[in-house]
Amino acid sequence: MAIRISPSILSADFAHLADEAAAVSDTADWLHVDVMDNHFVPNLTLGLPVVESLLKTVTVPMDCHLMIEDPDRWAPAYAEAGAGSVTVHAEAARSPVRTLREIRGQGARAGLALNPGTALESYADLVPEVDMLLLMTVEPGFGGQRFLDIVLPKIRRARELIAAGGGSIWLQVDGGISEETVERAAEAGADVFVAGSSVYKAEDPAAAVQSLRAQAEKAAVSGK
């Protein structure tokens, strides 16, 4: 199981996003972009025009997490723009199968996100349609929140579900990932880790990515 680290620019300096992306370009696997609309979640961040601009300068593939209403309308455009991965929320998508297939049709990886209180079992039938399953480990909307340990059993169930289907789907966790929590998430079965504050509030963001990766890799081995 390969470990992937995806720093979230939600915690970066928005006045210098290209520089902030470059700061982790040699150590990160993905650059996580939280798109929030102040409707689905109580925060407003950035949208497609900013993503399009970033795509012209960043060298790390972009992982766009759409925390928005009507992702069925907007998600394919992020994939068409060049995002390497586009994730929509199960709670917001009205036509998830069609939307996930449209994302794939544009050449991007298709992801499905579930909030902490959303039952995994309710969406188990959609798992074959995705390249990545994202389990929120905080309530979505703001960075810097504490990791919710109540999600750990759901991560374990998701890992079992993925393994039963062949194990090719990535299992991402987002929220409160730090040196204090990454090992618990990895032991439970996660293999893609979104880290915002723990990377971009660190003195050396690139070194923070390396440290998180080392901890996750060690924990993943012990959790087998």
Rank of each mutant, 00 (worst) to 15 (best):
D70Q: 14
R104I: 10
T87N: 07
A113P: 00
L120C: 02
G107Q: 05
V60S: 10
R94I: 12
T118W: 00
A75C: 09
P96F: 02
W74M: 15
A110R: 02
G107H: 06
L120A: 06
L66W: 05
A79V: 08
P76F: 12
E80A: 15
P116R: 01
L120Q: 06
T59F: 02
E80T: 13
L66F: 03
K56C: 05
L66V: 12
A92Y: 01
T59N: 10
P116Q: 01
L120R: 04
V58N: 00
G107P: 10
R101S: 14
A79I: 11
A110E: 02
T87Y: 03
A83Y: 04
N115H: 04
I103M: 11
A77T: 08
R73V: 07
A90E: 09
A92L: 01
E121F: 00
P61S: 11
A108D: 03
L114A: 08
P96S: 13
H89Y: 11
T99N: 12
V58C: 08
A77H: 13
E102C: 07
V97A: 15
E121S: 10
T57M: 04
R94D: 15
A108Y: 00
S95M: 10
E91M: 11
G84E: 06
P71D: 12
D72C: 05
G84C: 13
V60L: 09
A108G: 05
S85K: 15
E121K: 06
G107L: 12
P61D: 02
A108P: 04
T87C: 14
M62G: 03
A113I: 00
T99L: 07
C64H: 03
K56R: 14
I103C: 08
T57E: 15
R101I: 09
A110S: 07
L100G: 03
E69C: 07
M67N: 10
E69Y: 00
Q106W: 02
W74K: 12
A110D: 06
I68C: 04
T57N: 01
E91R: 10
A119S: 13
A77I: 03
